[in-house]
């Protein structure tokens, strides 16, 4: 059996939405170099819709695949929908991750939440309750 599913390898080899958005409406960064994973997400928001999302990731194959999949799930969704994205949904969309790689999907969920928080702070719109108490996991 291969280490990763075909979906993971597809997103690792052909990651979607890699890059940077100049003048992004929200930027979130999670992780640190000591842990060996950093994810940075950029979002563009028009009205209530995330019209564009890009990422950069320092990390292993599953970290890159999780970021890619998360951006794909979020792109074109509303802010409220993005808020509901869970790491579990990312894992399922990737047809599974090895147990010790599940934290990569958690980072993807948290990077998106961090970008949303940045968006609400910058735009002055009212922060949803769910984001007010958000704290990323310590690795």
């Amino acid at each position: 059996m291969a280490l990763y599913t075909e979906k993971v390898m597809d997103h690792f080899e052909n990651p979607r939405n890699v890059g940077v958005i100049e003048n992004a409406d929200g930027i979130g960064e999670i992780g640190n170099p000591i842990c060996g994973d950093i994810m940075k997400m950029y979002i563009k928001v028009e009205g209530d819709v995330i019209t564009d999302i890009k990422f950069k990731t320092f990390g292993c194959g599953s970290a890159i695949a999780s970021s890619s999949m998360a951006t794909e799930l979020i792109k074109g969704s509303t802010l409220d929908e993005a808020l509901e994205l869970t790491n579990k949904a990312v894992v399922e969309a990737l047809d599974g991750l090895p147990a010790r790689k599940v934290h990569c999907s958690v980072l993807a969920e948290e990077a998106i939440k961090a970008a949303l928080i940045d968006y609400y702070n910058k735009s002055g719109r009212e922060m949803p309750e769910k984001l007010k108490n958000f704290k990323p996991h310590e690795e």
Partner: peptide
């Protein structure tokens, strides 16, 4: 190219 850490190193942030 894909790494935010590399970007930080390149721009002198780290």
């Amino acid at each position: 190219e894909m790494s935010p850490l590399w970007e930080d190193l390149k721009t002198g942030k780290r």
